[in-house]
Design a protein around this nucleic acid. Structure first.
Lengths: 331, 331
DNA sequence: CTGTTAGCGCCTTCAT
DNA sequence: ATGAAGGCGCTAACAG
């Protein structure tokens, strides 16, 4: 009734448990004939190794702890998709935690994950509570900090410079001749990267001798609905705007919807610029002008990097997955 | 350097390991004063229980195996969100696997998850390989099959009847006076539930003495882009259509985009109907008429049900989370 | 190339 | 209300 153990396989194959273990983990050299016998016994019994036992004995588990701020924002499932892609074909399994942008929750998750002696912990951004940072530093596990590379990582950071992306948005709009540029965004407390892009935008404008004409932000998270409403609000206060940079594509698509409803010609009367390069933005009657962030690549690259070496490699490492302009037709 | 163990806590608190273990698991009765001493020692040492050891000793782990067909379709992250919500405040942790709609991959995932002696396994739909079904049945773990309730579950099923949803779509359109109804969809092999809705739609039309006028499907998964292109294709073949039912909202939003580009009046010239009730559909200049599926509730309900009882409760159980019409303005 | 010997850190059972 | 003993199933040394 209860599952077969190494011992069962060993006695059926007439070898020691250790040999079976070696066959399974592909460690050391084994006589081809022995290996065959063992594999047959495994198959015959339908043996599946008990992970808990293995983890206890080796003081390490094939778990990858993944901590995401949210699942509502499509960006994070896409990072997760990249992580899964990187994990395909390996014995590692992702364990997921969600912080709701709450650093204290992140700390608790890190502690629970560490209790599994995971192979790696992947989290988002560079901000952590002091206790969280200490736990990560002191543990031997590999640590990936994703999305953001404007900081010194604990182990490896994979992502892009959101500041530079903001600057690029400014450069793009200025290059197209827009001068009366405004900003429509969402909550910066939760989304520090959106704030970094904003700062970059302002810097970029400054370099061109411009300033932001107006801005409007909602309190909540980004959404199409919020983008629609917030652009409407912005325009009711500042009419002389010729281009709007949104905190991301969700917001920008909402803005586009507002323009459709209010019959504002895009980009003739008002240019729209997003961030992320989501599919929906490219399916609009006029594809959204935006910056493509490589979410999938961030997840995949991080996993590949982390699994390449079981131990930290001395000094911290930063990988820039970059970003690029999607020209679009809205700006 | 290495993490403190139960023994360390025990000797610091001057009790036996056993007592510490009892305090942590809140089992049996403990003298208040002893409990205090133990908790202090735990805090002082920063003790975190080793999950692998606990799982091995108790032959069970606080892991919930979650198997999803895809992360690209926003619907599944939303189910996952519900699962997380149900897990909040419990010691359980979700381990995620993605099948890419491949039953063989599901089988492999089930086997790996079972190796952890999880508290429960949550998967999607009713279709499994024979081996997968056997493993789930024979294991003592609780099993949740999500999304779909048109079948006899292994343990518990939580979801809705997609067939009935299809019928309701037909009823709604017929009630509004549409008679020349067509269908635009995506790959049924991957998405059996989309197929079930299609069948329901055809049945619903039949009840009203109607037949589907035309249909067009893409091979790939659903997406806005695919919806846009596929509606265009449908209309190039069948011009006398007055309403289109899409396999889901992604496709329908794409259809809406096509209508905008092609200057087709919605719903005057062509009515559009979706499925899911995604936010983006409701942010369109005319909110999409669609059926709201309760993805979040499905995940949350499933977890609550599964955790309510550690053992299977005798007979299989089905929970219908239902669905409802979102009236919208496109049909 | 294979076997032997000890644990890994905790939980379970049985005492007291 | 607490302790002692044993073992969960596997891997890590070491032999040979």
């Amino acid at each position: 009734m209860s599952s077969p153990t190494l011992a069962d396989v060993a006695s059926l194959a007439d070898v020691s448990e250790n040999t079976v273990s070696r066959v399974i983990r592909n460690k050391g050299s084994i006589a081809p004939e022995t290996r065959k016998r063992v594999n047959e016994a495994i198959r015959k019994l339908g043996y599946v190794p008990n992970r808990a036992a293995g983890s206890l004995a080796s003081a390490s588990s094939p778990i990858i702890g993944v901590i995401l701020p949210s699942l509502s924002n499509i960006v994070f499932p896409e990072v997760l998709r990249g992580i899964h892609a990187g994990l395909a074909g390996t014995p590692y399994q992702p364990m997921i935690g969600v912080t709701d942008y709450d650093l204290k929750k992140e700390e608790v998750l890190i502690s629970s994950f560490l209790a599994w002696k995971p192979a790696a912990i992947i989290t988002t951004g560079c901000e952590h509570t002091p206790a969280a940072r200490r736990m990560l530093k002191n543990s031997a596990v590999r640590v990936g900090e994703l999305m953001d590379i404007d900081h010194r990582p604990i182990d490896v950071a994979v992502g892009m410079s959101h500041r530079q992306a903001g600057q690029l948005a400014a450069k793009h709009l200025v290059g197209r001749g827009y001068t009366k540029i405004a900003y429509v965004g969402h909550d910066w407390n939760a989304d520090k990267r959106a704030h970094a892009r904003y700062l970059g935008l302002v810097e970029g404008l400054k370099m061109a001798g411009l300033v932001l004409r107006a801005q409007c932000r909602t309190d909540g998270p980004s959404s199409t609905t919020a983008g629609k409403a917030t652009l409407a609000e912005l325009l009711s206060q500042a009419k002389e705007v010729d281009a709007v940079v949104f905190s991301n594509d969700d917001m920008a698509v909402g803005g586009y919807m507002h323009c459709l409803s209010a019959q504002i010609a895009v980009p003739e009367t008002l240019a729209l610029f997003g961030f992320n390069g989501l599919e929906i933005g490219q399916a609009l009657p006029k594809p959204l002008s935006t910056i493509l962030s490589n979410r999938f690549a961030i997840g995949k690259t991080a996993v590949e990097l982390l699994l390449a070496d079981p131990a930290r490699n001395g000094k911290p490492k930063i990988v820039d997955t970059g970003f690029s302009i999607l020209e679009g037709l809205t700006a």
